[in-house]
Design a binder for these strands. Structure first.
Lengths: 346, 346
DNA sequence: CTGAAAGCGCTAACAT
DNA sequence: ATGTTAGCGCTTTCAG
């Protein structure tokens, strides 16, 4: 048995302002005022209108409104990813969740713009640049910054995650990656480790750069200059982490702790260590950053530096809303705290 | 240094049809015809218009168009989740990716409607019911079907993932869960296992029901009626899987194979087995369904039944587009094949 | 094949 | 405090 469809929504025309006005015995303008709860409207009028609205099930027509106000009540989330990349990135999903949450307090809608090739890039840019959205959230997973500046140049409010490596400053929200990496190092040192090494992320992304910098600064501060030289590059993937760990292990057989700049790389490191017959954490402690991939899935659970990914999404929206409301101004860079989450005895 | 913002997009008005018409020396109507590449337009006119369009960088104003056509060129993805649920579900992200991919071939935009409480539910329903979108993709993670029927009743084209348990039929795309579970059982039996048990998913979701049914039918067919009684309920989470496995193990200490109806539950089972000192897969083989959670993260990698999650998203969009284009008709239920992916010697 | 004209439903001056 | 009016940019009859 199929669900009864009735007349399609496109056919059965929704009630208009006009209808509400008539039923309430006022003018369209008054109804509009009530709907946008602006200006002074007499209590009686307001009540009559409200009643009519509920009676009719009136919902404002977004298109009509948008046509005159030039606002769209819509913001775009642009995820710029290379063809090879996983859109199913848990980081992305968590940010999305946070953003949606913050947005659910407003009347705004979120549209998703996935950018892969140059063609999609241009399409997204045109879409955004032509007033189809009130603002843009940019998740530039690859530190590719031309999108950010393009959007910004188009005069559309923009908030990005992370920061640009070019030195240009746009509104952004980021986790305290430098501080977090320091946290990891100090934890390892405090638990007696001395021969540290790190698996760094891609250095064309601010997050990769910052986590490496945090590591380096902290090991130097701890009086472990050698550790600052034990660096292997990873690419934020499990395979990359595994390979990097294997290399480090080969070059520095005596290392007793590994800081991986991402959760997936930490997982890879764990595997490499196991494959090499090293015991974790007895022989080699592993600590990773937590980018929302299931770090807790590892066995044993790895100690991690947690960044508040969901909150990051929330803050991005909050900042964007502020910018949309207040207009342009000095760019703001919000930095969210990171946190050490001890999960094993490492 | 901050990015130069210039006049905001809202201020600097985008070129209109009118402008294009003037530059091309034709009427607005002709430009409109060219833009919608419809009707007969003389080659010369078409060319002049095209040139003017590129010269001006014209992009149609969606709001204006939508106002008259009553189409929105927008479809909504509704994810209905209970408060406790993970939006960061890898399944969701993969479906999203697939949907976006299919959509990128069109001019449609995707808006995301996250539904958590009743309030958000109603809001989404009003939004959808009032012609703000041309169609709806429903990811009812919890088998809650009232949303589906509500949307359908509102006359808005709808495609859901999975199927309704009420027996109502709406357009849907689903993986072959029954067949997949059968695949798992036959694989286990073929590799010499005889004392099977299953960790079932929630039975208020079609996916839970179907995977259990597939298991049951297959073990009966294999002449293992006892296996049909060894069922523990899980909730698709790692913790649930772990607890269920522990229970099964306690009741049936001699079991030699476990079919988990989700990847996370398979992971939980793996942990429970390890905690109980059982070796995997030597003593107990574990096989799980692959819902896009990182099943490959387990160590050893688990053999899984893969469902094509990304394609599911694509097919949902395709079906929806067809429905939007062709209008109502007999509901279609697309079933996607599942596949055995052998990863260990289990 | 093309143009003129009439709105789509709403908001925002401007009156009153 | 409320009503009147003039569009927003586009599509779509209807004439020609």
């Amino acid at each position: 048995m199929s669900v009864d469809e009735g007349p399609s929504a496109a056919q059965r025309r929704a009630p208009t302002l006009e209808a509400v006005a008539e039923l309430a015995g006022v003018s369209r303008a008054t109804v509009s005022r009530v709907v946008n709860d602006s200006e002074r409207v007499s209590p009686e009028a307001r009540e009559a209108v409200t009643a009519a609205i509920t009676a009719l099930g009136y919902v404002p027509n977004r298109a009509a409104r948008s046509l005159v106000t030039r606002r769209t009540d819509t913001i775009a989330l642009i995820a710029h990813e290379r063809p090879d990349t996983v859109f199913a990135d848990p980081f992305f999903a968590s940010v999305l969740r946070g953003a949606n949450q913050a947005l659910s307090l407003t009347q705004l809608q979120l549209v998703l713009l996935q950018v892969q090739g140059d063609q999609q890039r241009d399409r997204a840019l045109r879409y955004v640049g032509n007033g189809h959205v009130d603002g843009v959230l940019l998740l530039s997973l690859h530190g590719d910054d031309t999108l950010a500046t393009s959007v910004s140049k188009a005069g559309v409010p923009l908030v990005m995650a992370g920061r640009l490596l070019t030195g240009e400053v746009v509104d952004s929200v980021d986790a305290d990656n430098v501080g977090g990496a320091g946290l990891a190092v100090r934890h390892l040192v405090a638990t007696g480790r001395r021969r540290l090494a790190t698996i760094a992320g891609p250095l064309d992304m601010s997050v990769g750069v910052d986590r490496l910098r945090g590591y380096t600064e902290a090991v130097l501060e701890a009086g472990l200059p050698d550790a600052a030289t034990r660096i292997a590059a990873g690419d934020f993937t499990e395979a990359g982490g595994r390979a990097a760990a294997a290399r480090l292990l080969a070059e520095h057989p005596t290392l007793d702790a590994l800081f991986a700049a991402s959760d997936l790389m930490a997982l890879g490191a764990l595997r490499a260590l196991r494959a090499a017959g090293r015991r974790v954490p007895e022989e080699v402690a592993v600590i990773g950053f937590d980018d929302a991939a299931p770090a807790a899935y590892t066995d044993p659970p790895l100690t991690t530096i947690r960044q508040p990914v969901e909150r990051l999404g929330q803050e991005m929206v909050r900042l964007l809303l502020r910018r949309i409301g207040d207009g342009p101004g000095e760019p703001v860079a919000v930095v969210l705290p990171t946190e050490l989450v001890v999960r094993s005895s490492a």
